[in-house]
Amino acid sequence: MQYMLLFHQPAGELERTPNDPASADYWETWRAYMSAIYSAGIVTSGNVLQPPSTATTVRFRDGQREVLDGLFAETKEMLGGYLIIDVPSLDEALTWAARSPSSSTGSTEVRPIALLESA
């Protein structure tokens, strides 16, 4: 089965930059996690997102396009990235989710993919 792992991270964490020496450990834990999960051969696709401050939200109401700066909802934890993985059951997906650095500082959501691809 395919699952999407959504990495919800504290807002402060998402503003970290790759070349900040104080963030070296942070990036290292992510690198270690990503290499482990990719090596397991279960990742279908995945992306890291730019920080929430770069987000733009669009609504379409009464024939008008409304563009808002920022996320559609400001919460304490926000989506920092995701992976699509293919594993036999929810239990394996939860095991991988628990190992994610986001589970230690924020939370990792596990959502099954709909059978029909969005295409």
Binding site: M1, Y3, P88, S89, L90, D91, A93, V110, P112
Partner: peptide, 11 residues
């Protein structure tokens, strides 16, 4: 059904 819970004895 949808989330793929397994009907096996837990580890």
């Amino acid at each position: 059904r949808a989330a793929g819970l397994r009907f096996e004895e837990p580890t």
